[in-house]
Design a protein around this nucleic acid. Structure first.
Lengths: 206, 206, 206, 206
DNA sequence: AATGAATGAGACTTCATTCAT
DNA sequence: TATGAATGAAGTCTCATTCAT
């Protein structure tokens, strides 16, 4: 009995190990050759495993990609979905600044995975729609917040949808600047975007 | 003599005609199947011409793409490079609003070509770098304008590079909203982005 | 354990079998259609295997050719490199005659492969240079032998390089006569070339 | 009338001129890219004429080649067919030496054309058979000469066919040495081959 | 005669996927 | 599970040849 279980466990461990090796290899090859430029042969040989073995663990490149990207995708999804209901103008600073900062920090900490995502957005429909979902949700959240602020006479009467999109688009594009190291100073970006946002949206006097 | 010239002209006309047919066909196939999904066979058969003929006119898909896209690329490059030096706050409205509006209008009027560009950005390095150049120039221009405004005490002392990027990123992403018909009301977008921008950047009290 | 080894062996055997089938098929197609006239499609279909399979075993036609030809090339290289230092005129007969005879015999026994080589010399640089190397070495060897004979006053004072080339050229061209069955009597050819050679080169009186 | 004839003549002249330009261009391209590597496009563009024009003058590459090569082929054919009937041993020297010398001189004076022929032998059946015919005739001639010499007890009783082939093969291969500039000294080659030949074939004592 | 645009057969090559071991 | 040999569809591209001008 025990012997049998050990066997099973050994197999599982081995399988998990192979799987991990594949994912690491895939990450490195994707970064080097891009999504379409990568073949299963590249991945398997760099992982030091057999050709067909990749197929056992991942049905196709798409699935491999999803697994590589899923973790970070989930994280950014969470960051983006933080709910806030500022009762006073002072709270806004804390909340908005932090949200921008968190997104950019995530980008900086996972540059490589985001670089893969960047490439994948043009080639994988699944990744693309996942990505779009996240930011649409971000926009929805921001719209709600703006509504709340408008109702409490904190924000000027602008088109919430447009403003929300605008601010989210800015953050999203700065994310790529961080990922590709065109920008580094996360604090400054967060600060300035916050100023632009609140200056443009919130009533200053009163 | 006349006969000879006619001959030359006839040939040129025919060639130009074929070339045009290829470009139209390519446009339609690109839209339908995407850049990578398109083959020279698709293009030639839809254009009703021979297979090898495409190769006479265009060395490869890349070159074909450039030709399709070049006109619109040039146009957007021009729109983006309009110089302005507002002396008074009142002028800013006119200029900024108009620039946003012009970009979005161009997008609306050339939806199909921009859809091809959208796809091409992920697959053609040439197109990508051309596109990036245009918007980097846009950013540079905006930085200069902000400097000018800051020196004349029209604008608040924010980081010009970040603010310029922010506003350009917003416009660029709204461009895609227009292209993919997720947004339609160009006036309203221009209006709101203008308000966000000026509200965030310019000194309100005077 | 044993099971595993069997698996490996089974695969290896299968692979070797396919490889052999390709080589045989290639040999037959090369003979029939010539080197340039042969396509991988011809080879694969005649071998009764899949199209892409050939590419697994051989990178290109060149490599395939080398494999076909290598064995015979090596053999002729060896025959040609036999060293001899005749101390007496009587030995010369034995040695020279035998060398000519060996080359021609090899040609007769491997007619088909030599026919492929014949064709390949005009199309494959690798084969051409391999072939030239072999016969240049043959010439070098013959020059050395002539020097030796001259020093021992067996040979007349002719230009060794030219004489050596001459004799090698004769043998090489008779090789093709054998290969293409324009000549058959190897003994007679060897005999006569030997006579021509020794008669022309060696001192008769003494 | 006269006007008409002038017109005709003008046309003929122009046509001949074009033809000549094509041949020169073809020669240069053949030398540079080899027979199979040369396309009609290469030839026409280097000749500075229209694409289809080549087809008016030459049906295909083969025909073009023949025209390029014909002159030299005829010349070598003539050199090779010189009849001789030496009555005395002294005459042999004069005749044999001269024939070898003439062949090699022709090679030296037409290196480029022979280089084209060299390449063509592996690709053009017509050229190949023309070439073979010439040297077969050379062999036939040499056989006859040997018979004559044997009947007059000038030559030893060797197999005439084999000896004739041997000597012709040597000359033919030295021809390529000259063409490819691996050898330069025609006199010395002729001298040595003559010595080898006569030493091997003719009765020395008497 | 001269031109060069148009043609399309066919060679080459890659690679996702299957499958026997 | 792991392996890698085998497969063939599908794409790229070339070039001899035709033909309208």
């Amino acid at each position: 009995m025990e012997k049998h279980e050990t066997k099973i466990d050994g197999r599982k461990k081995r399988s998990a190990c192979t799987r991990k090796a594949i994912l690491e290899s895939a990450k490195s090859v994707f970064l080097e050759k891009g999504y379409t430029g990568t073949t299963f042969k590249d991945i398997s040989s760099r992982a030091g495993i057999g050709y067909g073995t990749v197929y056992i663990h991942f049905k196709d490149k798409e699935e491999l990609l999803q697994n590589l990207v899923d973790d970070v995708m989930t994280k950014i999804g969470k960051v983006v979905y933080i709910n806030y209901s500022p009762s006073r103008y002072a709270d806004v600073r804390e909340i908005v600044y932090n949200q921008i900062y968190s997104v950019l920090k995530l980008a900086r900490e996972n540059r490589h995975v985001f670089q893969i995502i960047w490439d994948a957005l043009g080639h994988s429909k699944v990744t693309r729609s996942y990505w779009d979902d996240i930011f649409n949700r971000f926009i929805e959240r921001t719209i709600e917040d703006l509504h709340y602020s408008q109702e409490h006479h904190l924000a000027r009467p602008l088109q919430t949808k447009i403003i929300a999109k605008g601010i989210v688009y800015m953050i999203r594009e700065f994310l790529w600047d961080i990922v590709w190291e065109r920008e580094n100073d996360i604090e400054q970006i967060s600060e300035n975007l916050f100023e632009l946002y609140t200056g443009g949206v919130y009533q200053t006097t009163e």
